[in-house]
Amino acid sequence: MSLALAAVTAILFAAGTWLLLQRRLTRIIIGIGLLGHGANLLLVTSGGRAGSPPVIDGSAGSPAEYSDPLPQALALTAIVITFGVTAFLLALGYRSWQINRDDKVEDDLEDRIVARLNELDGPEGPIDDGDPDTNEFEVEEDAQP
């Protein structure tokens, strides 16, 4: 049973990491969600084997037969936090879509300005860097003769 949980955790982490590396905001948000699920599942798994409910009413024999309640409490806390922050991220994503009508994540504006300084200083002199909305890497590729 623990092996199945470990495998599910691994899949969630892998899928979450892949989605996180995309340029589309919606995919990043889903990726964060999957990563959070993976981490919470790992937290539950860290409590060890399943056992009787951790309520001491005399139904189970030795303390070893109870399941460990602490990781479950920790996982609950973590789930609540992940839930709240994901909701905020979705709101932020919606606001971003309202502004840009596009959910592509662009490079930082200041980074692009600094990257352009470099070209102005180069031996080629000022170059036409085309569409200002493209990212700095594409601009640098254009600069290569």
């Binding site: 990563l35 937290l43 860290s46 922050v85």
Partner: peptide, 20 residues
């Protein structure tokens, strides 16, 4: 937010492994 969330997820992961 995204970077901080990745750090937080890593934090939970470390906590789970430490607890285990």
């Amino acid at each position: 937010v995204v970077i901080s969330l990745v750090a937080s997820t890593l934090f939970i992961t470390s906590l789970a492994l430490l607890y285990a």
